[in-house]
Computed example of a mutant assay.
Amino acid sequence: MNIKFDPNNVVIKLCMSGMVMEENGNTEGSIMMFLKAWHEATDDYERFIAAYHLARQQKSITDKLKWMETSLQCALNINDDNVKSAYSTLYLNIAKCYEELCDSTNARRNYELSNSYKGAPSDEGPFYHGTKADLQVGDLLIAGGNSNYKPNLKMNHIYFTANANGAGLAAALAKGEGRERVYIIEPTGEFENDPNVTDKKFPGNLTRSYRSKEPLRIIGEETEWVKLTTTERHKWRENLAKNKGEIIN
């Protein structure tokens, strides 16, 4: 199975709405939205995401534990690279619940499981990088260039993703006048989860976004991805201008 994170998925959109309510202090509204997401979920992937957000909102530790374990079980049922990055976070939250319940045996077991899933990502791709630069197969993309999003910021890493639509978004927002390009790349060295998205709004790295200090080699070009509408592009640029899309380097 190879699940792609889709921001237009009904359950993900409901959870995003719930998180906006949460940020605005409307806790009751956010819980209602996450419950709606849970009831509208049609598969384990959607249930895993909805249960995680419901777990975060529970005041009772036993309720939080129940929902977090539900989320984990749904994630384990999927057994997909897109979801494995969330295992460490889920086990960690479960361990903390057991610790608060003074169950040291289960707390220790879940801390150990959380640690066992930490480390370098196991994603095997294919991987993509979006840009407006006109490049050739065999060319290397290297870190140290200027950020597409913040003027005068030198990037210590080069970013890429296993989601062609995510790379297409990066291409649409990249500086330059050239046409949007999504290149198929292979990392030449170690890479890590992109800290800008990992464990931020969703557990783990569901967008399969990565970064590396080592060059990325271009091995082809992708021509099929979902293009942004003019309205969507304008909205993304507004968010970036407000620093909502800030890249942490």
Rank of each mutant, 00 (worst) to 15 (best):
L92I: 09
L92D: 10
N93W: 02
N93V: 01
E100N: 09
L101S: 07
N106I: 03
N106C: 06
R109W: 01
N110H: 15
N110P: 08
Y111A: 02
K118M: 10
G119F: 00
A120T: 02
P121D: 06
D123M: 08
E124Q: 14
G125M: 12
F127P: 03
A133W: 02
A133C: 10
A133I: 12
D134K: 08
D134I: 04
D134Y: 04
Q136T: 07
Q136L: 10
V137A: 03
G138E: 00
G138H: 00
L140K: 06
L141D: 01
I142Y: 01
I142L: 06
A143M: 12
G144Q: 03
G145W: 02
N146I: 14
Y149F: 08
K150P: 00
P151L: 09
N152G: 02
M155L: 15
M155P: 05
M155S: 07
N156D: 15
I158S: 03
I158G: 02
T161I: 12
N163W: 01
A164Q: 14
A170V: 14
L173V: 09
L173P: 03
G176F: 02
R179D: 14
E180D: 13
V182Y: 11
Y183V: 00
Y183Q: 05
I184L: 12
I184K: 12
T188D: 12
T188P: 14
T188R: 10
F191P: 00
E192I: 15
D194K: 12
D194L: 13
N196S: 15
